[in-house]
Amino acid sequence: MSPTIAQRVGRSVRSVLIEQGRHQSEIANALRLTEPAVSRRCRGETAFRSDELLVIAELLAVPVQRFYESAQADLQTPSPAA
């Protein structure tokens, strides 16, 4: 089963955090969520809302499109034949 959009976007957010040496707790504070709630979003169990992604993009100083571009690139990559 291929990853959902929520999983792909969550992976993108997590990737930017890692690149910048930042922590999910910073997102939790900015969004006024618990760290487990942010972790669920980064794993794609719960989708980030668009307003949350705007706050995260501002916090991390990246364009919000970055989260979607990465997710879209995953969609365009052909999956291996079964």
Score class of each variant (00 low, 15 high):
1 M>N: 05
1 M>V: 09
3 P>C: 07
3 P>F: 07
3 P>N: 12
4 T>M: 04
4 T>Q: 04
5 I>Y: 05
5 I>R: 08
5 I>W: 03
5 I>T: 08
7 Q>G: 08
8 R>L: 03
10 G>S: 15
10 G>D: 10
11 R>V: 01
11 R>Q: 07
12 S>A: 15
13 V>W: 00
14 R>Q: 08
15 S>T: 10
17 L>Y: 05
17 L>I: 01
19 E>S: 02
19 E>N: 01
20 Q>K: 11
20 Q>T: 00
21 G>S: 05
22 R>E: 00
22 R>K: 00
23 H>Y: 00
24 Q>M: 08
25 S>R: 06
25 S>H: 06
26 E>T: 04
26 E>N: 06
26 E>P: 08
27 I>Q: 03
27 I>M: 02
27 I>T: 02
29 N>W: 15
29 N>Q: 12
32 R>L: 09
33 L>R: 07
33 L>D: 01
33 L>P: 06
34 T>C: 00
34 T>Y: 05
35 E>A: 11
35 E>H: 15
36 P>M: 01
38 V>T: 10
39 S>T: 08
39 S>D: 06
41 R>M: 08
41 R>P: 01
41 R>V: 03
41 R>W: 05
41 R>Y: 07
42 C>K: 09
42 C>N: 09
42 C>W: 02
42 C>G: 04
43 R>N: 12
43 R>I: 05
43 R>M: 09
44 G>R: 11
44 G>F: 05
44 G>T: 10
45 E>Q: 11
45 E>K: 11
46 T>V: 13
49 R>Q: 06
50 S>M: 14
51 D>Q: 13
52 E>M: 07
52 E>V: 04
52 E>D: 03
52 E>H: 09
52 E>A: 02
53 L>C: 11
54 L>N: 02
55 V>C: 07
56 I>V: 11
56 I>L: 03
57 A>K: 13
58 E>K: 12
58 E>A: 09
58 E>P: 04
59 L>I: 15
59 L>G: 09
60 L>T: 06
60 L>H: 05
63 P>R: 12
64 V>N: 00
64 V>K: 00
64 V>I: 03
65 Q>K: 11
66 R>D: 06
67 F>D: 00
68 Y>A: 14
68 Y>V: 13
69 E>P: 06
69 E>M: 12
70 S>F: 04
70 S>I: 07
72 Q>G: 07
73 A>R: 15
73 A>I: 11
73 A>P: 07
74 D>F: 00
76 Q>Y: 09
76 Q>S: 04
77 T>W: 07
77 T>L: 04
77 T>K: 13
77 T>E: 03
77 T>F: 01
78 P>S: 13
78 P>L: 14
79 S>Y: 14
79 S>R: 15
81 A>G: 09
81 A>L: 10
82 A>H: 14
